[in-house]
Design a protein around this nucleic acid. Structure first.
Lengths: 352, 352
DNA sequence: CGACCTATTGATCGGACTCAAGGTTGGTGG
DNA sequence: CCACCAACCTTGAGTCCGATCAATAGGTCG
């Protein structure tokens, strides 16, 4: 059940409004002034806040300003309630980050509509889009379902790519966001002849190619299918209108990008100071975490030695020698190009 | 002179409004329907758009939707003009990314106020916050000047840090955004005893420590003063309210973070496949680009060999040998801990 | 001026790269 | 269905870059 925090100094209005909301099966927390409201918000983490503007002690603007100070409360949908439907008020409220506006007097329908549409919008974004790329994907998937743009997704071009086929090239100008419907894809940067460094690996359900769209610059990497794949090309315009259409979407992106930076920095220090042996262990664990879906059984993957070497950032031969060592130490099993991880725990200890 | 695009189908209203704006010394481009308006927007790149909602051919919502499709036009401030001050309209408009709302009939003052406040807000952000950290800094500086939060900046704590003093530690929880008023600072990740990798270098006027704030996680790196420094500690709440307060700020951040990722990826491939010699050349160029202010004279910097080695990601001795080579090749001059770059061109060729 | 830190040079060692060759695997066409 | 080819995997030997250890020289700060 959703919790709504209602901040309103007029007792009649407050109780009336609360009643309407409660009849619609919301859990309502009431506060009779701004200061109390802020405290309740911090304590209860409501799903939505409805707040009067003119109040003693601390007015509505003050409330939103204080709540914006912490990321936790800043992302709670915020609806202003005001007696005078004056434009100036409204403008100030919107600038400070309110999501909606209801002017008194209002009827039940109007109130509930605003509340519901706001909650629904936020729902999409709630599913913690932080950790990793998966977050982004979930976000896109969900967004597509509800967004008005969904009609566009139906016109999406689906293209087939053969194993080893190039999807986009370093230096090209980005025109699409890519969605991997089926298969596996790698993105890499080329150095000299034959030397690549794989910057990312994608699996079914992943989106890729968005960093260059965000930078509005040519691709700095090349994408290639690791196996036969089906890929949807989503016009960049759709991506942009989705991106720039909502503050919450942007928040998710900022978080995701920061995480990405942290990852790369970790990778940097490993490349600088860790031995190939450690880095190979790391790469195997990365593969497992990315491609393993039933965590119960032991994980195996078919990957070319060259690709694996390019993840680690070493020569193919060096990689193979390390893998052979791992085999002797009974950490992995090898059958052709297929690698099975037997002892993930030992591998994890090894990489540190 | 600022250019304003006015999209309005009613001839009287349009010409009247245009006249008001022209009297206020704006350059006004007129369009009499949505379709034409979009074309004009793409062609003229106006500084602001005022647009009616109800229009034949293509209505105001259609206009904003189309403009949002391209980053160039998406960032132009957008003001809706509407006859009916209905909440539903307004709500829809705001959701689609309009920045403000003016309802007809309006008087001169109201119109001009809205226009000016919007232009001013955008001004702050216009200065291309892309390329590098400098962008961020400029942004913060400008933002501080105009933002209502400026009063808070006066209560900021200024702290003195001695050379080699730690500012924050890996694993600590972030509570501040740091502003380097004077001195030099490095951030680095530690690996084993004595092995560090410098992830960033800051100079006077730079902000740092924001990635961990964005991630809302403990620091993944340590910050240390390279020389005696003066640093302002800005409470994280202030940072958050600034961040989450505006869509444009967030856009700048997204761009900046994407650029940062691209940088790190470049660094990654260098660490993986380039020789120490190349990487040293690269590091010297980095130092020059970061710390050189009068580009005419040859650039010199005083930096410990250990720190330089930690930028490159190599052992101190290896770095020194390479530096000695460079000295013999007349690329640099060395006096104690002071390094002067003599031939930057050759260095640049070398690093590739 | 002495203690301590930093820079430099030398010698040695080892990890990882390169080149080379032989073994496997899988796919294709006869 | 088999033979053959190409691509890939694996192992070996040699080499070199860069790390490490050690010792000395140069600077700096109290």
């Amino acid at each position: 059940m959703k919790t709504i925090l209602l901040i309103e100094d007029n007792k009649d209005v407050r109780e009336n409004t609360a009643e309407i909301l409660e009849l619609a099966h919301y859990n309502v927390v009431q506060a009779e002034n701004g200061k109390q409201g802020v405290e309740e918000a911090q304590q209860h983490k409501p799903d939505l806040i409805i707040c009067d503007i003119m109040m003693p002690v601390l007015d509505g603007y003050g409330v939103i300003h204080l709540l914006n100070k912490s990321p936790e409360t800043a992302s709670i949908p915020f609806i202003f309630l005001t007696a005078k439907s004056e434009r100036l008020d409204f403008r100030k409220g919107m600038e400070m980050g309110a999501d909606d506006y209801i002017s008194k007097p209002f009827d039940d329908i109007e109130l509930l509509n605003a509340v519901e549409s706001r909650l629904k919008k936020n729902e999409i974004l709630k599913a913690e889009f932080s950790k990793d790329v998966n977050g982004l994907n979930k976000f896109f998937n969900d967004a597509r379902k509800t967004d008005e743009l969904k009609k566009l997704s139906e016109e999406r071009r689906i293209k087939q790519f053969k194993k080893k086929e190039t999807i986009f090239n370093e230096g090209n100008n980005p025109n699409f966001l890519y969605f991997l419907a089926k298969g596996k894809v790698k993105t890499f940067k080329a150095h000299e002849y034959g030397k690549e460094l794989i910057t990312d690996l994608y699996k079914e359900g992943d989106f890729f190619g968005y960093t260059s769209l965000l930078e509005e610059k040519p691709y700095t990497e090349t994408a290639e299918a690791l196996e036969d794949s089906e890929i949807c090309l989503i016009p960049k315009d759709d991506f942009y209108s989705l991106m720039y259409g909502s503050m919450n979407v942007m928040k998710s992106f900022i978080k995701m990008l920061s995480d990405n930076i942290a990852d790369k920095e970790k990778q940097l220090i490993n490349l600088a100071y860790s031995s190939v042996r450690k880095r190979v262990a790391d790469a195997l664990i990365l593969l497992q975490s990315r491609y393993d879906n039933n965590k119960d059984k032991s994980f195996s993957i078919s990957i070319s030695r060259e690709d694996l070497a390019n993840i680690v950032g070493t020569a193919t031969e060096s990689l193979i020698r390390t893998l052979s060592d791992f085999k002797e130490e009974k950490l992995v099993e090898i059958k052709g190009s297929n690698i099975t991880i037997i002892n993930i725990e030992k591998l994890k200890k090894l990489r540190a």
